[in-house]
Design a protein around this nucleic acid. Structure first.
Lengths: 108, 108
DNA sequence: TTGTTATATTCCTATGTGTGTATTTGTGTA
DNA sequence: TACACAAATACACACATAGGAATATAACAA
């Protein structure tokens, strides 16, 4: 069981940080259906264009999405399936926690 | 493929945020060896006591660590193995990325 | 009770982050 | 060339967050 270097810890922290924002998570959600342009994501999420662009840049910098230019458009897509695995691991934990909390509160 | 509610997205984001800090990640790292008291964690990490206590509280609030009072001491431990799974998923991604980047840069 | 030690909390400050508006860059078309 | 449109960036500001120092709370001992 080796200790991680300070430097590696920072990288991991940065990666988690990229996933720690509602706006970026909803972008990833939208991309589950396949590649989308920036404008399509703007319409799908209701966020401002600059905002979407910035968040996509951050996701890209952290290897969570891939991008590809297509003429005037830039199409973004999920980098790979592990990205969703990460979210699902967290969601799984949340669901069981919520279910148990509900049991305690409502009795069923 | 159902869309997550805004509310659930916020919960997921908060959970990731708890993992997106170097200090909290090193606390989790130390806890891989088993339960530890706050002071033991202070010594092991070199962080200030107030700081350690605050970060542990946040990890606890997000279900990432469990705690148990033992007299004057409070012993913290990892909530379960999935917590480490999360970190390892991220680390695995990082390692392959770093390896490939090294290949590009140094040629081996 | 008083005292001691472990942990939690409060206050303050510096730094970081998200977002809107406006502007710039990039690409294709006339 | 000039123009139109998609995407990225610059600037400003409000807000959140991490950290140290000091204080408060909790549990036990004498």
């Amino acid at each position: 069981m080796k200790r991680m270097s300070q430097e590696l810890l920072d990288l991991v922290a940065e990666r988690f940080k990229a996933l720690s924002d509602r706006a970026r998570l909803s972008l990833l959600q939208e991309l589950r259906g396949g590649p989308m342009t920036v404008n399509e994501l703007v319409e799908a999420t209701g966020m401002g264009q600059a905002n979407v662009s910035r968040h996509l840049a951050q996701l890209f910098a952290n290897g969570l999405v891939a991008r590809e230019r297509d003429g005037v458009f830039v199409r973004y897509e999920l980098a790979d399936r592990d990205v969703l695995k990460l979210c699902e691991l967290v969601c799984g934990r949340l669901e069981t926690e919520l279910t148990e909390r509900r049991k305690v509160v409502t009795g069923r």
